[in-house]
C-alpha cells in the first residue's frame, strides 16, 4: 500500500490526513527526517508558511526535505505549502525550498476579509473545483518547466512542475479528493 506523509509542524494537517484516508492510502505525520524516508509522497499543508519554514529549519527537516524533493519525491503543497515550495516570494524574507520554479505573492488576494470561495477550472478535471482561498497567495511568474493548471482572474492558482504540485486553495477543507488523487497518480 502506498503511504503518503503530511508535514506536521503546524497547520491543517488533520484535514489532509482525513482526505488522504478517504482515497484509500496509508497516511503518516512527518515531523522528523527519518519519517520522511518512509513515505511515497508528501503533502505540505496549509498553515502559516513562516512558522512551518522556521520550525523545519530549527529541527533539521528543511535540508532533508529539499533533497528528497530534488530526488523525485512527489509533493503537493496547499497555500503555505505552495509558498514553501517556491523559489522566490515577493517582499518576504523566509526559508523557501526553491523546488518549484515560480515567483509567488503572499496574501495576494488580500487579508482575511478578502478570503473567498470560487469554482476553479482545473486542467484535467471535467467539473470546476470548489476553491477555498484563505489569505491566499498567487503565482506571479512561472519558469519554463512549470505548467499552469488553474487560474483565478488570470492569476495562476494551481501549477505543476514534474512531480511537484501546488495550489493556492485548500481542497482539504472541501472533502473533494480529485487534486489529492493527482498527487497519488504521480507516485
Amino acid at each position: 500500500m502506498k503511504s503518503v506523509g503530511v508535514l506536521a509542524l503546524q497547520g491543517d494537517v488533520r484535514e489532509h490526513l482525513n482526505l488522504l484516508d478517504s482515497l484509500g492510502v496509508a497516511t503518516a505525520e512527518v515531523k522528523k527526517p527519518q519519517q520522511l524516508e518512509l513515505v511515497d509522497a508528501l503533502v505540505i499543508p496549509g498553515g502559516e508558511s513562516t512558522t512551518i519554514g522556521k520550525m523545519a529549519v530549527r529541527f533539521g527537516l528543511f535540508e532533508p526535505l529539499r533533497l528528497a524533493i530534488e530526488a523525485g519525491l512527489p509533493v503537493y503543497g496547499t497555500c503555505a505549502g505552495m509558498i514553501l515550495l517556491s523559489g522566490t516570494v515577493i517582499d518576504a524574507d523566509q526559508p523557501l525550498l526553491g523546488s518549484l520554479d515560480v515567483l509567488v505573492r503572499r496574501n495576494a488576494f488580500g487579508r482575511q476579509n478578502e478570503s473567498f470561495e470560487a469554482g476553479v477550472d482545473v486542467e484535467g478535471l471535467s467539473d470546476p473545483f470548489p476553491g477555498v482561498f484563505i489569505r491566499a497567495p498567487w503565482v506571479e511568474k512561472v519558469g519554463a518547466e512549470v505548467e499552469v493548471l488553474g487560474s483565478v482572474d488570470d492569476h495562476p492558482v494551481m501549477v505543476r512542475q514534474g512531480r511537484i504540485l501546488a495550489t493556492s486553495f485548500h481542497p482539504e477543507l472541501t472533502g473533494d479528493g480529485r487534486i489529492h488523487q493527482m498527487l497519488l497518480d504521480l507516485i
Binding site: 494537517v13 484535514e15 498553515g47 502559516e48 478570503s115 473567498f116 489569505r135 477543507l173
Partner: peptide
C-alpha cells in the same frame, strides 16, 4: 467569489492549528 462564508471564516482558524 463569495467572501465571509462560514467555510473561509472557520478555515482560517484551521490554518492556525498547532501554532501559537
Amino acid at each position: 467569489m463569495d467572501t465571509g462564508t462560514e467555510r473561509v471564516k472557520r478555515g482560517l482558524a484551521e490554518m492556525l492549528k498547532g501554532g501559537v
